[in-house]
Design a protein around this nucleic acid. Sequence first.
DNA 1: GCAGTTCGATACCGATCGGTACAGAAGTGG
DNA 2: CCACTTCTGTACCGATCGGTATCGAACTGC
Lengths: 214, 214
Amino acid sequence: MTLGRPRAFDLDERLDRAMRVFWRQGYEGTGLADLTEAMGISRPSLYAAYGNKEALFRKAVAHYTAGPARHADAALAEPTARAVTEHLLRGTVRVCTSDENPSAGCLIVQGALVTGPQGAALREELALMRAEGERALCARYRRAQEEGDLPAGLDPADLARHVKAVTYGIAVQAATGTAPADLHRLVDMTLAAWPPPAPAPAPAPDGPELPAGR
Amino acid sequence: MTLGRPRAFDLDERLDRAMRVFWRQGYEGTGLADLTEAMGISRPSLYAAYGNKEALFRKAVAHYTAGPARHADAALAEPTARAVTEHLLRGTVRVCTSDENPSAGCLIVQGALVTGPQGAALREELALMRAEGERALCARYRRAQEEGDLPAGLDPADLARHVKAVTYGIAVQAATGTAPADLHRLVDMTLAAWPPPAPAPAPAPDGPELPAGR
DNA sequence: GCAGTTCGATACCGATCGGTACAGAAGTGG
DNA sequence: CCACTTCTGTACCGATCGGTATCGAACTGC
Protein backbone atom coordinates (compact mmCIF):
# COMPACT_ATOMS: atom_id res chain seq x y z
CA MET A 1 0.00 0.00 0.00
CA THR A 2 0.87 3.72 0.10
CA LEU A 3 1.31 3.91 -3.60
CA GLY A 4 3.22 6.63 -5.31
CA ARG A 5 6.03 8.86 -4.26
CA PRO A 6 6.18 9.30 -0.50
CA ARG A 7 5.82 12.73 1.07
CA ALA A 8 9.24 14.23 1.72
CA PHE A 9 8.30 15.97 4.99
CA ASP A 10 6.54 15.20 8.23
CA LEU A 11 2.98 16.49 8.30
CA ASP A 12 2.87 17.19 12.00
CA GLU A 13 6.25 18.78 12.30
CA ARG A 14 5.52 21.26 9.49
CA LEU A 15 2.10 21.94 10.92
CA ASP A 16 3.82 22.87 14.14
CA ARG A 17 5.88 25.45 12.29
CA ALA A 18 2.79 26.85 10.60
CA MET A 19 1.07 27.09 13.97
CA ARG A 20 3.89 29.23 15.28
CA VAL A 21 3.58 31.67 12.41
CA PHE A 22 -0.17 32.02 12.90
CA TRP A 23 0.42 32.37 16.59
CA ARG A 24 2.79 35.25 16.12
CA GLN A 25 1.06 37.06 13.26
CA GLY A 26 -2.58 36.04 13.39
CA TYR A 27 -4.60 34.68 10.50
CA GLU A 28 -4.88 37.83 8.43
CA GLY A 29 -1.35 38.94 9.20
CA THR A 30 0.06 35.75 7.76
CA GLY A 31 0.59 35.26 4.03
CA LEU A 32 1.17 32.09 2.07
CA ALA A 33 4.75 33.22 1.57
CA ASP A 34 5.30 33.40 5.34
CA LEU A 35 3.90 29.91 5.71
CA THR A 36 5.78 28.21 2.90
CA GLU A 37 9.03 29.80 4.01
CA ALA A 38 8.59 28.78 7.64
CA MET A 39 7.38 25.32 6.75
CA GLY A 40 10.06 24.76 4.15
CA ILE A 41 7.64 23.40 1.59
CA SER A 42 6.29 24.76 -1.66
CA ARG A 43 2.86 26.17 -2.17
CA PRO A 44 1.40 23.18 -4.04
CA SER A 45 2.72 20.85 -1.35
CA LEU A 46 0.97 22.94 1.25
CA TYR A 47 -2.31 22.78 -0.61
CA ALA A 48 -2.03 19.07 -1.28
CA ALA A 49 -1.26 18.32 2.33
CA TYR A 50 -3.48 20.70 4.25
CA GLY A 51 -6.16 22.02 1.89
CA ASN A 52 -5.83 25.78 1.88
CA LYS A 53 -4.84 28.60 4.20
CA GLU A 54 -8.08 28.49 6.14
CA ALA A 55 -7.97 24.71 6.59
CA LEU A 56 -4.34 24.95 7.62
CA PHE A 57 -5.28 27.49 10.25
CA ARG A 58 -7.95 25.17 11.63
CA LYS A 59 -5.44 22.33 11.81
CA ALA A 60 -2.99 24.68 13.48
CA VAL A 61 -5.61 25.56 16.09
CA ALA A 62 -6.28 21.88 16.77
CA HIS A 63 -2.54 21.30 17.04
CA TYR A 64 -2.39 24.22 19.46
CA THR A 65 -5.14 23.03 21.79
CA ALA A 66 -3.67 19.53 21.81
CA GLY A 67 -0.14 20.83 22.27
CA PRO A 68 0.92 24.09 23.88
CA ALA A 69 -2.55 24.82 25.23
CA ARG A 70 -3.51 21.40 26.49
CA HIS A 71 -3.38 22.77 30.04
CA ALA A 72 -6.84 24.22 29.39
CA ASP A 73 -8.39 20.77 29.25
CA ALA A 74 -5.97 19.20 31.70
CA ALA A 75 -6.84 21.78 34.34
CA LEU A 76 -10.39 20.48 34.54
CA ALA A 77 -9.10 17.19 35.91
CA GLU A 78 -7.68 18.79 39.04
CA PRO A 79 -9.40 17.63 42.22
CA THR A 80 -10.55 20.99 43.58
CA ALA A 81 -12.00 24.15 42.08
CA ARG A 82 -9.07 26.11 43.36
CA ALA A 83 -6.54 23.71 41.85
CA VAL A 84 -8.44 23.82 38.56
CA THR A 85 -8.23 27.59 38.60
CA GLU A 86 -4.57 27.72 39.48
CA HIS A 87 -3.66 25.11 36.89
CA LEU A 88 -5.57 27.04 34.25
CA LEU A 89 -4.10 30.42 35.11
CA ARG A 90 -0.49 29.31 35.56
CA GLY A 91 -0.66 27.29 32.38
CA THR A 92 -1.98 30.33 30.55
CA VAL A 93 0.90 32.44 31.78
CA ARG A 94 3.38 29.82 30.72
CA VAL A 95 1.95 29.39 27.24
CA CYS A 96 1.51 33.09 26.62
CA THR A 97 5.13 33.79 27.50
CA SER A 98 6.86 30.72 26.12
CA ASP A 99 10.53 31.20 25.46
CA GLU A 100 10.37 30.75 21.72
CA ASN A 101 7.55 33.25 21.45
CA PRO A 102 8.07 35.66 24.33
CA SER A 103 5.15 38.05 23.95
CA ALA A 104 2.97 35.71 22.01
CA GLY A 105 -0.31 35.63 23.80
CA CYS A 106 -2.85 32.97 22.92
CA LEU A 107 -3.68 31.72 19.45
CA ILE A 108 -7.32 31.15 20.33
CA VAL A 109 -7.66 34.70 21.58
CA GLN A 110 -5.76 36.69 19.01
CA GLY A 111 -5.47 34.42 15.99
CA ALA A 112 -8.63 35.97 14.58
CA LEU A 113 -10.07 38.22 17.29
CA VAL A 114 -11.21 40.75 14.71
CA THR A 115 -11.15 40.24 10.96
CA GLY A 116 -12.42 41.53 7.66
CA PRO A 117 -15.36 39.81 5.96
CA GLN A 118 -13.30 36.94 4.55
CA GLY A 119 -12.05 35.95 7.97
CA ALA A 120 -15.48 36.10 9.58
CA ALA A 121 -15.98 32.33 9.65
CA LEU A 122 -12.75 31.70 11.53
CA ARG A 123 -13.40 34.60 13.87
CA GLU A 124 -16.74 33.13 14.83
CA GLU A 125 -15.27 29.66 15.24
CA LEU A 126 -12.62 30.91 17.64
CA ALA A 127 -15.26 32.84 19.55
CA LEU A 128 -17.24 29.64 19.82
CA MET A 129 -14.21 27.78 21.08
CA ARG A 130 -13.67 30.39 23.76
CA ALA A 131 -17.31 30.24 24.75
CA GLU A 132 -17.14 26.46 24.89
CA GLY A 133 -14.08 26.61 27.11
CA GLU A 134 -15.98 28.86 29.46
CA ARG A 135 -18.95 26.53 29.45
CA ALA A 136 -16.73 23.59 30.36
CA LEU A 137 -15.16 25.53 33.19
CA CYS A 138 -18.60 26.52 34.41
CA ALA A 139 -19.66 22.88 34.45
CA ARG A 140 -16.54 21.99 36.41
CA TYR A 141 -17.30 24.65 39.01
CA ARG A 142 -20.86 23.42 39.26
CA ARG A 143 -19.56 19.95 39.98
CA ALA A 144 -17.24 21.42 42.59
CA GLN A 145 -20.24 22.93 44.32
CA GLU A 146 -22.04 19.61 44.34
CA GLU A 147 -18.95 18.08 45.86
CA GLY A 148 -18.94 20.77 48.50
CA ASP A 149 -15.65 22.03 47.18
CA LEU A 150 -16.92 25.53 46.42
CA PRO A 151 -19.39 27.72 48.36
CA ALA A 152 -22.91 27.22 47.09
CA GLY A 153 -23.76 30.93 47.11
CA LEU A 154 -21.70 31.63 44.01
CA ASP A 155 -22.90 31.43 40.43
CA PRO A 156 -20.59 29.02 38.60
CA ALA A 157 -21.23 30.89 35.35
CA ASP A 158 -20.09 34.15 36.92
CA LEU A 159 -17.04 32.41 38.27
CA ALA A 160 -16.09 30.84 34.96
CA ARG A 161 -16.61 34.12 33.15
CA HIS A 162 -14.39 35.87 35.63
CA VAL A 163 -11.56 33.34 35.52
CA LYS A 164 -11.71 33.18 31.74
CA ALA A 165 -11.57 36.95 31.60
CA VAL A 166 -8.38 36.82 33.63
CA THR A 167 -6.86 34.35 31.18
CA TYR A 168 -7.77 36.67 28.31
CA GLY A 169 -6.27 39.52 30.26
CA ILE A 170 -3.09 37.51 30.68
CA ALA A 171 -2.95 36.89 26.93
CA VAL A 172 -3.27 40.58 26.13
CA GLN A 173 -0.84 41.53 28.87
CA ALA A 174 1.66 39.09 27.39
CA ALA A 175 1.22 40.67 23.97
CA THR A 176 1.79 44.01 25.65
CA GLY A 177 5.15 42.85 26.91
CA THR A 178 4.43 42.11 30.57
CA ALA A 179 7.08 39.83 32.10
CA PRO A 180 6.12 36.28 33.17
CA ALA A 181 6.94 37.01 36.82
CA ASP A 182 4.52 39.93 36.79
CA LEU A 183 1.84 37.78 35.24
CA HIS A 184 2.37 35.16 37.92
CA ARG A 185 1.81 37.85 40.52
CA LEU A 186 -1.40 38.68 38.72
CA VAL A 187 -2.37 35.04 39.16
CA ASP A 188 -1.36 35.24 42.82
CA MET A 189 -3.77 38.10 43.32
CA THR A 190 -6.62 36.28 41.65
CA LEU A 191 -5.98 33.18 43.77
CA ALA A 192 -5.59 35.16 46.97
CA ALA A 193 -9.19 36.26 46.51
CA TRP A 194 -10.36 32.67 45.93
CA PRO A 195 -13.13 31.81 46.30
CA PRO A 196 -14.34 35.26 45.31
CA PRO A 197 -17.07 36.93 47.38
CA ALA A 198 -20.58 37.03 46.00
CA PRO A 199 -21.02 40.22 43.98
CA ALA A 200 -23.01 43.07 45.47
CA PRO A 201 -26.67 43.19 44.37
CA ALA A 202 -25.79 44.82 41.04
CA PRO A 203 -24.94 48.54 41.46
CA ALA A 204 -27.21 49.65 38.60
CA PRO A 205 -25.96 49.20 35.04
CA ASP A 206 -25.90 52.98 34.77
CA GLY A 207 -23.54 53.88 37.52
CA PRO A 208 -21.56 57.04 38.21
CA GLU A 209 -19.54 56.84 35.02
CA LEU A 210 -19.68 59.17 32.06
CA PRO A 211 -21.91 58.45 29.10
CA ALA A 212 -19.22 56.50 27.33
CA GLY A 213 -20.57 56.97 23.82
CA ARG A 214 -18.60 59.45 21.81
CA MET B 1 -7.41 82.86 3.07
CA THR B 2 -8.30 79.20 2.53
CA LEU B 3 -7.49 79.34 -1.13
CA GLY B 4 -8.66 76.79 -3.58
CA ARG B 5 -11.64 74.52 -3.71
CA PRO B 6 -13.00 73.78 -0.27
CA ARG B 7 -13.15 70.22 1.00
CA ALA B 8 -16.57 68.73 0.41
CA PHE B 9 -16.72 66.68 3.61
CA ASP B 10 -16.11 67.09 7.31
CA LEU B 11 -12.74 65.72 8.35
CA ASP B 12 -13.81 64.65 11.81
CA GLU B 13 -17.09 63.07 10.85
CA ARG B 14 -15.48 60.90 8.17
CA LEU B 15 -12.66 60.01 10.54
CA ASP B 16 -15.31 58.77 12.92
CA ARG B 17 -16.64 56.46 10.23
CA ALA B 18 -13.13 55.17 9.49
CA MET B 19 -12.58 54.53 13.19
CA ARG B 20 -15.65 52.34 13.31
CA VAL B 21 -14.39 50.21 10.45
CA PHE B 22 -10.98 49.75 12.06
CA TRP B 23 -12.71 49.02 15.33
CA ARG B 24 -14.75 46.23 13.83
CA GLN B 25 -12.18 44.72 11.48
CA GLY B 26 -8.79 45.64 12.88
CA TYR B 27 -5.96 47.27 10.95
CA GLU B 28 -4.99 44.35 8.77
CA GLY B 29 -8.55 43.24 8.24
CA THR B 30 -9.49 46.59 6.77
CA GLY B 31 -8.82 47.46 3.13
CA LEU B 32 -8.81 50.82 1.42
CA ALA B 33 -12.02 49.82 -0.30
CA ASP B 34 -13.75 49.26 3.06
CA LEU B 35 -12.58 52.65 4.22
CA THR B 36 -13.50 54.68 1.15
CA GLU B 37 -16.90 53.04 1.00
CA ALA B 38 -17.67 53.66 4.67
CA MET B 39 -16.28 57.17 4.58
CA GLY B 40 -18.01 58.06 1.34
CA ILE B 41 -14.92 59.65 -0.16
CA SER B 42 -12.58 58.60 -2.93
CA ARG B 43 -9.14 57.20 -2.47
CA PRO B 44 -7.20 60.34 -3.45
CA SER B 45 -9.35 62.41 -1.10
CA LEU B 46 -8.49 60.03 1.71
CA TYR B 47 -4.79 60.28 1.02
CA ALA B 48 -4.88 64.07 0.68
CA ALA B 49 -6.80 64.45 3.92
CA TYR B 50 -5.25 61.83 6.18
CA GLY B 51 -1.95 60.71 4.66
CA ASN B 52 -2.21 56.98 4.15
CA LYS B 53 -3.84 53.97 5.71
CA GLU B 54 -1.39 53.81 8.59
CA ALA B 55 -1.70 57.52 9.37
CA LEU B 56 -5.46 57.23 9.16
CA PHE B 57 -5.38 54.42 11.67
CA ARG B 58 -3.33 56.54 14.07
CA LYS B 59 -5.80 59.39 13.74
CA ALA B 60 -8.62 56.92 14.28
CA VAL B 61 -6.96 55.73 17.49
CA ALA B 62 -6.61 59.31 18.71
CA HIS B 63 -10.25 59.91 17.84
CA TYR B 64 -11.11 56.78 19.77
CA THR B 65 -9.28 57.68 22.96
CA ALA B 66 -10.73 61.17 22.87
CA GLY B 67 -14.20 59.89 22.04
CA PRO B 68 -15.67 56.49 22.87
CA ALA B 69 -12.80 55.57 25.18
CA ARG B 70 -12.35 58.81 27.03
CA HIS B 71 -13.60 57.10 30.18
CA ALA B 72 -10.08 55.67 30.56
CA ASP B 73 -8.64 59.10 31.27
CA ALA B 74 -11.76 60.42 32.96
CA ALA B 75 -11.73 57.58 35.45
CA LEU B 76 -8.45 58.80 36.92
CA ALA B 77 -10.16 61.95 38.14
CA GLU B 78 -12.49 60.05 40.46
CA PRO B 79 -11.92 60.84 44.13
CA THR B 80 -11.19 57.34 45.43
CA ALA B 81 -9.29 54.33 44.15
CA ARG B 82 -12.43 52.29 44.21
CA ALA B 83 -14.37 54.88 42.23
CA VAL B 84 -11.53 55.09 39.73
CA THR B 85 -11.68 51.33 39.29
CA GLU B 86 -15.42 51.17 38.95
CA HIS B 87 -15.51 54.07 36.49
CA LEU B 88 -12.82 52.39 34.41
CA LEU B 89 -14.42 48.96 34.40
CA ARG B 90 -18.01 50.07 33.78
CA GLY B 91 -16.86 52.40 31.05
CA THR B 92 -14.96 49.56 29.43
CA VAL B 93 -18.05 47.37 29.44
CA ARG B 94 -20.11 50.12 27.93
CA VAL B 95 -17.63 50.90 25.14
CA CYS B 96 -16.96 47.26 24.32
CA THR B 97 -20.66 46.55 23.92
CA SER B 98 -21.90 49.78 22.39
CA ASP B 99 -25.16 49.45 20.54
CA GLU B 100 -23.79 50.26 17.11
CA ASN B 101 -21.00 47.76 17.51
CA PRO B 102 -22.38 45.04 19.80
CA SER B 103 -19.45 42.69 20.13
CA ALA B 104 -16.81 45.18 19.24
CA GLY B 105 -14.27 45.02 22.00
CA CYS B 106 -11.63 47.70 22.26
CA LEU B 107 -9.76 49.30 19.38
CA ILE B 108 -6.59 49.71 21.43
CA VAL B 109 -6.63 46.04 22.35
CA GLN B 110 -7.56 44.37 19.14
CA GLY B 111 -6.90 46.95 16.42
CA ALA B 112 -3.43 45.49 15.95
CA LEU B 113 -2.89 42.94 18.72
CA VAL B 114 -0.93 40.68 16.40
CA THR B 115 0.19 41.59 12.89
CA GLY B 116 2.46 40.63 10.06
CA PRO B 117 5.76 42.47 9.57
CA GLN B 118 4.21 45.50 7.88
CA GLY B 119 1.92 46.14 10.82
CA ALA B 120 4.66 45.77 13.41
CA ALA B 121 5.04 49.49 14.03
CA LEU B 122 1.37 49.97 14.83
CA ARG B 123 1.29 46.85 16.94
CA GLU B 124 4.13 48.15 19.07
CA GLU B 125 2.54 51.57 19.34
CA LEU B 126 -0.72 50.14 20.62
CA ALA B 127 1.21 47.97 23.07
CA LEU B 128 2.94 51.09 24.29
CA MET B 129 -0.38 52.86 24.70
CA ARG B 130 -1.70 49.98 26.78
CA ALA B 131 1.44 49.99 28.91
CA GLU B 132 1.16 53.73 29.36
CA GLY B 133 -2.46 53.41 30.46
CA GLU B 134 -1.37 50.89 33.05
CA ARG B 135 1.41 53.16 34.23
CA ALA B 136 -1.04 56.02 34.69
CA LEU B 137 -3.41 53.81 36.64
CA CYS B 138 -0.54 52.64 38.80
CA ALA B 139 0.40 56.24 39.55
CA ARG B 140 -3.20 56.98 40.48
CA TYR B 141 -3.26 54.04 42.90
CA ARG B 142 0.00 55.19 44.42
CA ARG B 143 -1.53 58.59 45.03
CA ALA B 144 -4.53 56.89 46.59
CA GLN B 145 -2.22 55.15 49.02
CA GLU B 146 -0.58 58.43 49.96
CA GLU B 147 -4.03 59.84 50.57
CA GLY B 148 -4.85 56.89 52.79
CA ASP B 149 -7.49 55.84 50.34
CA LEU B 150 -6.00 52.42 49.69
CA PRO B 151 -4.24 49.98 52.06
CA ALA B 152 -0.49 50.55 52.07
CA GLY B 153 0.37 46.86 51.95
CA LEU B 154 -0.59 46.50 48.29
CA ASP B 155 1.70 47.08 45.35
CA PRO B 156 0.05 49.69 43.12
CA ALA B 157 1.73 48.17 40.06
CA ASP B 158 0.20 44.77 40.85
CA LEU B 159 -3.16 46.42 41.33
CA ALA B 160 -3.01 48.34 38.07
CA ARG B 161 -1.87 45.26 36.19
CA HIS B 162 -4.75 43.30 37.62
CA VAL B 163 -7.43 45.87 36.86
CA LYS B 164 -6.07 46.42 33.38
CA ALA B 165 -6.09 42.68 32.80
CA VAL B 166 -9.77 42.66 33.71
CA THR B 167 -10.47 45.41 31.17
CA TYR B 168 -8.65 43.38 28.52
CA GLY B 169 -10.64 40.38 29.57
CA ILE B 170 -13.82 42.39 29.15
CA ALA B 171 -12.76 43.38 25.66
CA VAL B 172 -12.14 39.79 24.62
CA GLN B 173 -15.31 38.60 26.32
CA ALA B 174 -17.23 41.24 24.38
CA ALA B 175 -15.69 40.00 21.14
CA THR B 176 -16.71 36.52 22.19
CA GLY B 177 -20.31 37.61 22.41
CA THR B 178 -20.83 37.95 26.17
CA ALA B 179 -23.86 40.10 26.99
CA PRO B 180 -23.38 43.50 28.66
CA ALA B 181 -25.30 42.41 31.75
CA ASP B 182 -22.96 39.46 32.22
CA LEU B 183 -19.95 41.72 31.85
CA HIS B 184 -21.37 44.05 34.47
CA ARG B 185 -21.63 41.11 36.83
CA LEU B 186 -17.99 40.41 36.09
CA VAL B 187 -17.28 43.97 37.17
CA ASP B 188 -19.42 43.40 40.27
CA MET B 189 -17.25 40.47 41.24
CA THR B 190 -14.05 42.40 40.74
CA LEU B 191 -15.37 45.27 42.85
CA ALA B 192 -16.73 42.97 45.55
CA ALA B 193 -13.16 41.88 46.16
CA TRP B 194 -11.92 45.47 46.34
CA PRO B 195 -9.42 46.26 47.65
CA PRO B 196 -7.90 42.89 46.78
CA PRO B 197 -5.96 40.97 49.42
CA ALA B 198 -2.20 40.97 49.26
CA PRO B 199 -1.08 37.99 47.18
CA ALA B 200 0.34 34.97 48.92
CA PRO B 201 4.15 34.89 49.08
CA ALA B 202 4.43 33.60 45.50
CA PRO B 203 3.52 29.89 45.27
CA ALA B 204 6.61 29.04 43.23
CA PRO B 205 6.55 29.85 39.50
CA ASP B 206 6.62 26.11 38.88
CA GLY B 207 3.50 24.98 40.58
CA PRO B 208 1.47 21.81 40.25
CA GLU B 209 0.60 22.44 36.61
CA LEU B 210 1.77 20.46 33.62
CA PRO B 211 4.85 21.46 31.68
CA ALA B 212 2.88 23.62 29.31
CA GLY B 213 5.32 23.56 26.40
CA ARG B 214 4.36 21.11 23.78
C1' DG C 1 11.62 -3.63 -17.37
C1' DC C 2 6.66 -1.29 -17.31
C1' DA C 3 2.19 0.87 -15.65
C1' DG C 4 0.13 3.40 -12.22
C1' DT C 5 0.15 6.77 -8.66
C1' DT C 6 1.63 10.57 -5.90
C1' DC C 7 4.86 14.24 -4.77
C1' DG C 8 7.47 18.53 -5.70
C1' DA C 9 9.07 22.79 -8.18
C1' DT C 10 8.32 26.24 -11.67
C1' DA C 11 5.54 29.21 -13.46
C1' DC C 12 1.42 31.18 -13.77
C1' DC C 13 -3.71 32.66 -12.81
C1' DG C 14 -7.22 36.51 -11.71
C1' DA C 15 -8.18 39.42 -7.85
C1' DT C 16 -7.02 42.51 -4.60
C1' DC C 17 -3.54 45.07 -2.07
C1' DG C 18 -1.89 50.04 -0.90
C1' DG C 19 -0.86 54.08 -3.40
C1' DT C 20 -0.79 57.71 -7.25
C1' DA C 21 -0.85 60.49 -12.05
C1' DC C 22 -3.77 63.17 -14.30
C1' DA C 23 -7.27 66.19 -15.62
C1' DG C 24 -11.36 68.64 -14.73
C1' DA C 25 -14.29 71.01 -11.24
C1' DA C 26 -14.78 74.53 -7.70
C1' DG C 27 -13.37 77.79 -5.05
C1' DT C 28 -10.16 82.41 -3.87
C1' DG C 29 -7.96 87.04 -4.79
C1' DG C 30 -7.12 90.29 -8.24
C1' DC D 1 -12.83 88.17 -16.67
C1' DC D 2 -8.11 86.03 -15.18
C1' DA D 3 -4.42 83.54 -12.59
C1' DC D 4 -3.88 80.55 -8.90
C1' DT D 5 -4.80 77.04 -5.55
C1' DT D 6 -7.00 73.01 -3.90
C1' DC D 7 -10.23 69.31 -4.08
C1' DT D 8 -12.53 65.28 -6.60
C1' DG D 9 -13.18 61.30 -9.76
C1' DT D 10 -11.33 58.14 -13.17
C1' DA D 11 -8.15 55.33 -14.32
C1' DC D 12 -4.08 53.29 -13.49
C1' DC D 13 0.48 51.63 -11.16
C1' DG D 14 3.54 47.67 -9.41
C1' DA D 15 3.28 44.36 -5.75
C1' DT D 16 1.21 40.96 -3.35
C1' DC D 17 -2.86 38.25 -2.32
C1' DG D 18 -4.69 33.21 -2.23
C1' DG D 19 -4.80 29.45 -5.33
C1' DT D 20 -3.58 26.22 -9.39
C1' DA D 21 -2.06 24.01 -14.04
C1' DT D 22 1.65 21.47 -15.63
C1' DC D 23 5.30 18.45 -15.90
C1' DG D 24 9.20 15.86 -14.42
C1' DA D 25 10.79 13.12 -10.36
C1' DA D 26 10.17 9.33 -7.19
C1' DC D 27 8.01 5.63 -5.47
C1' DT D 28 4.99 0.78 -5.51
C1' DG D 29 3.20 -3.27 -7.62
C1' DC D 30 3.66 -6.30 -11.32
